[in-house]
């Protein structure tokens, strides 16, 4: 009997370990010349503190919508690219992946750009928070005020995606 296959969603917020291969399989298509993957890992140090583990919290329904919005933005900017991303929540140990992004395209420049744009936008607008548990205490980390309509933030993410080394992907 065949094993039932659970379809991999294009975006997800999950407490399960992330599976980069599933995302690669999802975005890949015949004729692609490139697939770029990014995994963000829990680092063992931050701002001079020795990190023990991280705890991620999310406003899940809005986080999923924000991720959907980001992959749609990337598809608009790089029509040849297909992007998928999953973010993990809950307790994560050092070295575990908190986010995985896969971006496939006919050419590497678009795949790199779409992948980089996606991580920059995730940091800007996805309602997920990490609490750092370090030797001696714990603290919620706070980055950007989330405003999906902030054009300056979008432009910044685009500029980073289109930096010098990757200019071929951008107008």
């Amino acid at each position: 009997m065949a094993t039932p296959q659970v379809a991999t969603p294009q975006v997800a917020v999950t407490s399960e370990p992330l599976d980069a291969d599933a995302l690669i399989a999802l975005v890949g298509a015949q004729g692609d010349g490139a697939v770029v993957t990014f995994a963000g890992l829990v680092r063992d140090h931050n701002q001079g503190r020795r990190v023990r583990f991280l705890e991620y919290d999310a406003y899940e329904p809005l986080a999923v919508r924000a991720l959907q919005r980001i992959v749609a933005e990337a598809a608009e900017l790089w029509p040849s690219a297909r992007v998928a991303t999953h973010h993990r929540i809950g307790r994560l140990e050092i070295g575990e992946a908190s986010i995985v992004i896969a971006a496939a395209s006919a050419h590497r420049a678009d795949a790199f750009a779409a992948c980089r744009y996606t991580i920059e936008r995730v940091k800007q607008i996805v309602p997920i928070w990490k609490r750092e548990h370090f030797d001696g205490g714990e603290v919620w980390l706070e980055g950007a005020t989330a405003d999906p309509d902030d054009q300056a933030a979008r432009d910044k993410a685009y500029r980073i995606a289109c930096s010098e080394q990757n200019r071929g992907a951008c107008a």
Binding site: L62, Q124, P127, T145
Partner: peptide, 29 residues
């Protein structure tokens, strides 16, 4: 569960979420 503005009127039964600056993804600091 949709981003809104502070001047939006709320209705009976709405879920109103307030969120500090986000720090998902990776390497935020």
């Amino acid at each position: 569960a949709e981003y809104a503005r502070m001047n939006v009127a709320v209705r009976d039964g709405d879920e109103v979420a307030f969120m500090p600056p986000v720090s998902g993804g990776w390497d935020t600091c």
